[in-house]
Amino acid sequence: MFSPLIVLTTIVFVCAPVFIAWAPYESTMGLVQKIFYFHLPSWAAMFMAAFVCGIASAVFLFKGRIMADRIAVASAELAVVFGLIGLVSGPLWARKAWGVWWQWDARLTMALVLWMIFVSYLLLRKYGGPGSEKLAAGVALFGMANVPFVYWSVNVWRTVHPTTNVVPTLVAGMSGPLWWSLVGFLLLYALAMMARVRLEEQRAELERVYRELDD
């Protein structure tokens, strides 16, 4: 299961820079706009990870399924990684396009808060002590609930960030590389997710073996 997914993800990521290079230049921003082809998919993968973490946390909280908790912790880690890529690539684009690295407006601030919620989830899991997985699951629910607000914030509040109607109005030469990159990020999410869940399973197995040895 791992190998075909690794091959497919590698092919998509190796081809992505070629398609991005072929994409036409945006008329006002020029070359720097090409950051968009990794910036948007990284946030899409982050939102996906946040939703999976939130849903898995709800299943763990209300049904008590251990597997759901493993999926939640794996997805939270991925939400932090993809969010970090988005948070770093965004200011690099903004510096050229807006003239500033960062603007404390609704969209950017909410995106940062969303990312910090998942960082706090991981910190809670690591240093919260016994029972912290249930507290963390509650935090993940708030993180998931925050995602639609972050997404719609550009349409509701005044912000320097482009609105959500940019993607549907892209020309074919730009939308192709964007969707390609998006597929790549989602494949990477699936691949990393499977590996990370396997790590949690192996850790649980190790713990079980140690308990057996102690008994």
């Binding site: 070359l31 950051i35 990284s42 890529i85 690539s89 690099l92 510096r95």
Partner: peptide
């Protein structure tokens, strides 16, 4: 170019 390279390198 340096901003673009920095963004992709970091990702």
């Amino acid at each position: 170019a340096p901003l673009l390279v920095a963004a992709y390198s970091f990702a």
